[in-house]
Design a protein around this nucleic acid. Structure first.
Lengths: 135, 135
DNA sequence: AACAGTGTATTAAGAGTATAATACACTAAT
DNA sequence: ATTAGTGTATTATACTCTTAATACACTGTT
């Protein structure tokens, strides 16, 4: 096994946040902070499941989310690996700034969080209003 | 009853979108387009429930969402009324423009919709990471 | 007080989601 | 072909959310 320093994942089962989301977030954070680097292999689903006392499928679901979010790829029979990311810390800051501006404006106008989220979703899906489950 | 022109609500029960959300959205749209004006009374929950063939509680839930979103108020025993809104069409356009910029940047960086939504939520809640159910 | 109008609370059934248990399928090395 | 490693599919259960059925509470008029 590669000695990647330490990828520590802490799960709070009673937080209301799904476990697989917590796993995905922790890995995203690890990638963002350099604990996990491009091309590096993620722990096997069984290993991580054992470590955080959950089911391998739950870990697999977290990995699937990472893949969906474009942060990882799977090589069947081999493992799951971190993908090269386009986001630089600088670019993330830029994004944060836009978000900050948007939220400030929304609050000023009394537009709700739900509505902002809805606007985002519509814009990201190209202005589509329907969504038959998930796409 | 006041003759408000026509507030038409069309529900698609098989769209996957909760009925109460569809109702709230339709009313928001009606407010935005001037079909419903400031101070005007919304249809009684039973009336609207009958019209769209649903349960009064479902309509009530939609109204509660409007209240939460700052678009309506309830006077107990009297009815639910449209609140004066701060959003002008001009301001909404401004908001849309920011959203558009944000989405464009996000796509360029390969940041997922979920992550953008998460950033928005964190920003709107003042950078809080916990959320014990709903607040 | 009675009534007709309004929204609200309580409870239950149905659908959807998260998690787990288990079995399956792919890959590389032996 | 076997084995040990990997992710994946299937199925079941617990939980949450949406909707509904019903009863309750507030307000103004009579």
């Amino acid at each position: 096994m590669n000695d990647k320093g330490k990828l520590e994942i802490f799960i709070n089962p009673s937080s209301g946040v799904p476990i697989y989301i917590q796993i995905a977030d922790a890995i995203k954070y690890a990638i963002a902070t350099g604990i996990l680097r491009d091309g590096e292999q993620l722990p096997a689903v069984r290993d991580m499941a054992y470590q955080i006392t959950t089911n391998p499928n739950t870990v697999a679901k977290a990995y699937q989310k990472l893949i969906k979010d474009g942060l990882a790829e799977v090589r069947r029979g081999i493992g799951t690996f971190v993908l090269k990311r386009k986001e630089s810390p600088q670019n993330v800051e830029k994004l944060k700034h836009i978000v900050c501006t948007l939220v400030k404006e929304a609050k000023k106008l009394g537009v709700s969080e739900d509505d902002i989220v809805k606007m985002i979703k519509e814009e990201m899906n190209g202005g589509v209003r329907n969504r038959s489950k998930k796409a």
